[in-house]
Simulated assay, not measured.
Amino acid sequence: MPMARSTAVTWSLSAVAAGALLVGCSGSVSIGNTEPKLSSDKLATTVSEKLAATTNQPKPDITCPEDLVGKVGTTTRCTLTADDGSTLGVTVTVTSVEDERINFDIKADDTASPAAN
Rank of each mutant, 00 (worst) to 15 (best):
E35I: 13
T79D: 09
A115V: 11
L80W: 10
A115F: 00
P114L: 12
A20D: 08
N33F: 02
V97I: 06
L21Q: 10
A20W: 02
V90Q: 04
S14Y: 13
F104Q: 04
S28H: 11
K107P: 04
K71T: 11
D41I: 12
I106C: 01
C78M: 03
K71R: 11
L80F: 08
E100A: 14
T46G: 07
R101L: 11
A52I: 01
V29Q: 08
T54G: 02
I31R: 15
A20F: 00
V16C: 06
F104G: 05
A108G: 09
V92L: 06
T76L: 14
A115T: 02
T45L: 14
N103I: 01
E66A: 15
E98H: 11
R101T: 15
G27E: 04
V69C: 06
P60Y: 08
I102W: 07
T46F: 05
V90M: 10
A53F: 04
V23G: 01
N33K: 09
A52V: 02
K50G: 01
I62T: 07
S39C: 11
N103K: 08
A53W: 01
A20V: 08
L51A: 01
A18Y: 03
D105G: 12
A53D: 03
L51R: 08
V94R: 08
P60V: 13
T63K: 07
D61T: 10
D61K: 13
C25A: 14
S26W: 00
L21N: 12
T91W: 05
K107T: 08
V29T: 05
L22W: 06
R101Q: 15
R101C: 05
T91F: 00
E49Y: 04
A108W: 01
I102D: 00
V72Y: 03
L88P: 04
A20G: 15
A17N: 02
T46E: 14
G32A: 08
A116N: 11
P60G: 13
Q57N: 10
G19C: 10
T54I: 05
A53N: 03
V29M: 10
L80S: 07
V72S: 06
D67Q: 06
E35L: 15
A82V: 08
V16N: 02
D110G: 07
I31M: 12
S28M: 04
V90F: 04
D83P: 04
N103Q: 03
E100G: 08
D105I: 01
P65H: 13
P58M: 05
I62D: 04
D41V: 15
S28E: 10
E35A: 14
T45C: 05
G19T: 10
N33M: 03
T45F: 12
G70H: 12
D67N: 12
G70W: 05
R101E: 15
L80Y: 14
T79N: 05
G19N: 10
L22H: 09
P58C: 09
A115N: 04
L80M: 15
S30T: 13
I106A: 01
T93G: 07
K107R: 10
A44E: 10
V16D: 12
C78V: 03
S48N: 01
